[in-house]
Amino acid sequence: MDFGSINPVLLIAALMLASTPILLAALGELIVEKSGVLNLGVEGMMIVGAISGFIVAVETGSPALGFVAAAIGATIMALIFGVLTQLLLSNQVATGLGLTLFGLGVSALMGQSYVGIRPPASPRLTFFGLSEVPVIGPIAFNQHAMVYVSLALVVAIWWYLKRTRSGLILRAVGESHDAAHALGYSVLKTRFAAIAFGGACAGLGGAFLSLVIVPQWTEGMTAGRGWIALAIVVFASWRPWRVLLGAYLFGGVTVLQLNLQAAGIAIPVELLSMSPYLITILVLVLISSDKRRAAANAPASLGRSFHASA
C-alpha cells in the first residue's frame, strides 16, 4: 500500500471533473421535479447528449459546438417525453423508463461509426498566473469551462427558485397544479420549459463525459450516472446546494476509490466500486432524515398528470 501516491490537491481537482456530469444532470432534474414532473429518462437524455455532442465536435472540430449540439439533442429527447406525458397524459414513470431505453438504443445506433475516434481536445481554462498558484491553482483556476458553468448553475438555480417570480410560479405549479391553473398560470408551459431545461442540462452532462472526461465514445458510457443524478435530487430534498454536495461526494468517493485501487489497498475491488453509491446515499439519507422538512420541500404534485378540466 502506498497512500503517499494519492495527492489530495489532484484528488480534489479530479473529483470536480468527475462530478460535473452528475451535477449538471441532477440540477436539470431538480428543476423538472420542482415543476411537478418526474422524468426518469435522465440516463437516456445524457447518453443521447453524449453522442450528439461527440458527433458534432468530431465533424466540426469544435468542442463548444459539440456542447451546443448535446444540449439540443437531449432537449429533443426531453420534448418527446414532454409531448407524451403532458399532452398525451401518458404515465410519467413508464414513459421515463422508456426514454432511457430508447436513448441507450438510439445513441448506440448514432455512434456506430464513431467508436474508437478521439474527439478534438477541450482544454482546461487557465487564468494567467493564478493557475500556477499551489493548491488553489489546480483546484479553482485550472478547470474545464463546463465545471465553472455547472457551479454557476447551482447558484443561479438557488437564486431563481428562491427570489424570482418565475421561480415562485415554477414551485407553485409543482406544489398544486390545480391551484396554479385556477390562478391563471399555464401549467403546461411551465412544465414544458422545465422539461426542456432538464434535457439540456442532462445533455451537457453527457457531452462532458464523452468530450472531456473519457474522452471517446463507447456504447452505454453513462453507466448509470443518470440514475445517480435522479437519486441525488431526491435525497438532497430538492435543494441545489445539497445536490452539489451529493454530486461532489459521489464524484469524490469514485475518484478516491480508484486511487485506492491503484494504491493496491487490501479491500476487495467490488467493495470499493460500490462504495460511492453506498456512501452518497447514506450521507444524503442522514441529511434528509428530518421527514417533515423534507416532505415540505417535496413537490406535492410530483409525477401527477395534469389535465385542465373546466
Binding site: R165, L168, I169, R171, A172, E175, S176, D178, A179, A180, A182, L183, Y185, A296, N297, A298, P299, A300
Partner: peptide, 20 residues
C-alpha cells in the same frame, strides 16, 4: 375566493399572496 382553496401548502403566506 375559491371554494376549494387555491393555495399552496408548502409555500408561505406571502408567497401565496404574491401568486394571486
Amino acid at each position: 375566493v375559491f371554494q376549494h382553496f387555491s393555495l399552496f401548502e408548502a409555500l408561505d403566506v406571502a408567497e401565496n399572496v404574491a401568486l394571486g
